[in-house]
Simulated scan of single mutants.
Amino acid sequence: MHRVRRVRRVRHGSGRVAGRPGDTVIASVSTLALCCGLWLLHAGTGTSAPPQPSAAQAHSAGPGHGVGQVPASAALPPSPPDRIRIPSIGVDAPLTGLGLTDTGSLDAPPPERPDLAGWYEAGTTPGESGTAVVAGHVDNAEGPAVFYSLGALRKGGTVEVDRRDGGTAVFTVHAVEVYDARDFPDEKVYGAAVRPELRIITCGGGYSRTTGYRGNVVVYAHLTGSR
């Protein structure tokens, strides 16, 4: 997975660092690949690249653009997440906290832990109002990693996040899009939301044997239930 674009850190009254309108900076993107497709490189041309979302999975145009068909649920109180599940693509993974690198890019889980995903722990927690961010590798040198199949996720899919308070936040996917690294839409991905939203990010956008993955797959989801 590539490190994603630089985020300006703004401290709010809660003491947490959170994404709000204008907090993201469309700046230089770190092209240092934490996972450059070494598995694809070593396995040869017969190895399948990870699935990529089709145009049909992008945000819908017209009334209700970007909102999705399933109504949003009321926000939950803040609580750190411990686990993420995406049943339709077989994801069931622990979550670790992620920070920012010295250059201001979002860090990523250690590549030697392909089963592990991470969340931006200085920002919104999944289920509370705002935009929560989860990231993970698509592969490592040994093979597929936690979000290898993320590009196959479809609108209407379910994402479940187990929280430390004992509850589970249930999200419904309303878009899955892929972006070239040079055109990554910072504000669209990281910008503030009134309702509880979730972004899940991994590498994608095609693969080059010389430069690795060309961009990122991003899943957009909103809170539609809890238990």
Results as ranks from 00 to 15, higher is better:
188 K>E: 13
23 D>V: 12
188 K>R: 14
34 L>S: 05
132 A>N: 10
71 P>G: 14
92 D>S: 14
204 G>C: 03
161 V>T: 02
46 G>P: 02
146 V>L: 04
153 L>P: 00
158 T>K: 04
102 D>S: 02
161 V>A: 07
187 E>Y: 10
160 E>M: 10
45 T>H: 11
126 P>A: 03
58 A>F: 04
140 N>K: 08
139 D>M: 12
187 E>F: 11
65 H>G: 11
183 D>K: 12
215 G>D: 02
120 Y>E: 15
31 T>P: 04
115 D>S: 10
105 S>V: 06
225 G>L: 04
169 A>R: 07
165 D>A: 15
68 G>N: 13
55 A>W: 04
95 L>S: 05
184 F>G: 01
147 F>H: 00
175 A>M: 05
226 S>E: 11
181 A>Y: 09
126 P>T: 03
44 G>K: 12
154 R>N: 12
181 A>T: 12
129 S>W: 01
36 C>G: 14
9 R>T: 08
88 S>K: 09
14 S>P: 04
5 R>K: 10
50 P>C: 02
41 L>Y: 07
70 V>A: 11
152 A>S: 15
85 R>V: 13
196 P>R: 12
118 G>A: 11
93 A>I: 03
172 T>A: 09
58 A>Y: 06
118 G>H: 13
200 I>H: 00
130 G>Y: 01
117 A>G: 13
53 P>I: 03
209 R>C: 03
23 D>R: 03
136 G>F: 02
163 R>Y: 06
57 Q>L: 02
121 E>S: 14
194 V>S: 14
142 E>R: 06
41 L>T: 01
144 P>W: 00
143 G>T: 06
147 F>A: 01
208 S>C: 07
208 S>G: 15
163 R>H: 09
48 S>C: 04
171 F>H: 00
117 A>D: 06
86 I>H: 04
3 R>E: 09
227 R>P: 15
149 S>I: 00
163 R>C: 06
22 G>C: 13
163 R>M: 04
79 S>W: 08
61 A>P: 08
53 P>W: 01
227 R>Q: 14
172 T>D: 05
127 G>N: 05
19 G>L: 14
205 G>Y: 00
108 A>D: 09
149 S>Y: 10
188 K>I: 10
150 L>D: 01
48 S>M: 07
85 R>A: 13
42 H>Q: 09
73 S>A: 15
169 A>M: 09
161 V>W: 12
40 L>M: 13
212 G>N: 03
191 G>W: 05
7 V>A: 08
184 F>P: 03
90 G>S: 09
43 A>S: 11
151 G>Q: 06
15 G>Y: 12
1 M>E: 08
177 E>I: 05
37 G>P: 00
12 H>T: 13
112 E>Y: 14
165 D>N: 13
16 R>M: 07
11 R>M: 11
132 A>L: 12
173 V>W: 00
126 P>Y: 00
151 G>I: 02
153 L>E: 04
199 R>A: 10
175 A>G: 05
47 T>M: 09
123 G>R: 01
76 L>H: 07
47 T>Q: 15
60 S>R: 10
7 V>Y: 08
33 A>S: 09
216 N>T: 02
10 V>I: 13
118 G>D: 12
104 G>Y: 09
24 T>F: 12
152 A>L: 05
